[in-house]
């Protein structure tokens, strides 16, 4: 599976981590890739920790297990850093992307000595300013595309614009807000 990009999402029920994994699968699919997007199902409660996964490859993917050694981990809620072993199995050649306002010295001690790259983004700020509400999945989606270099950013933005137009046909202002959130996120995800 050396040619398969594996991504693990950690979020809380209701934050859209599952949806983000499916949107990422969609975006990669539209570039001609083979994709998998799937959550790990358990008791479904708002606020409970949830895990979702992506596999993306140029070749057909047959593995149907969870992901144990991802190249990238996305943490949609920084309160999970103390609740879930988010860096477990994460490749040190890869990266972790965290939605947080905390500084490097606060975040790094929570990562159990993870030696790979660490990126942060303030998805709350971007989401509330662009969408008027807290939907962290849009900024996190943009962040993972930037960090993983999965596809050219311009292609990603235009592809997402198309799918938002389709999804929110009756609410054009939501489309515009989401696109603005994506564009801002591209510039506001930083390595710490």
């Amino acid at each position: 599976m050396s040619n398969v990009m594996e991504i693990r999402w950690h979020g809380r029920g209701g934050q859209g981590a599952k949806t983000a994994s499916l949107l990422l699968a969609d975006a990669a699919f539209n570039t001609g890739k083979y994709v998998q997007g799937f959550p790990e199902y358990g008791p479904e409660r708002m606020g409970a920790p949830i895990t979702a996964y992506n596999r993306i490859s140029d070749e057909k993917i047959t593995v149907h297990s969870n992901i144990y050694n991802p190249q990238f981990v996305v943490v949609v809620d920084d309160s999970l850093l103390t609740a879930v072993d988010v860096t477990n199995g994460l490749s040190e050649d890869g990266a972790i992307i965290i939605n947080t306002t905390k500084k490097a010295e606060e975040i790094k001690p929570l990562l159990k000595g993870y030696a790979g790259k660490v990126y942060t983004i303030d998805a709350r700020k971007i989401s509330t300013e662009c969408l008027g509400r807290y939907f962290p999945n849009t900024p996190m989606l943009a962040a993972v595309v930037v960090v993983s270099k999965l596809m050219p950013i311009d292609d990603f933005i235009s592809d997402m614009a198309e799918s938002y137009k389709h999804k929110f046909a009756s609410k054009p202002h939501v489309v515009e807000g989401n696109i603005r959130a994506l564009k801002r996120s591209v510039t506001e995800v930083h390595e710490i």
Partner: peptide
């Protein structure tokens, strides 16, 4: 077909 693994996972 397998619940969740196949039923809920998005694939090509």
């Amino acid at each position: 077909y397998d619940g969740f693994i196949t039923s809920h996972a998005v694939e090509n």
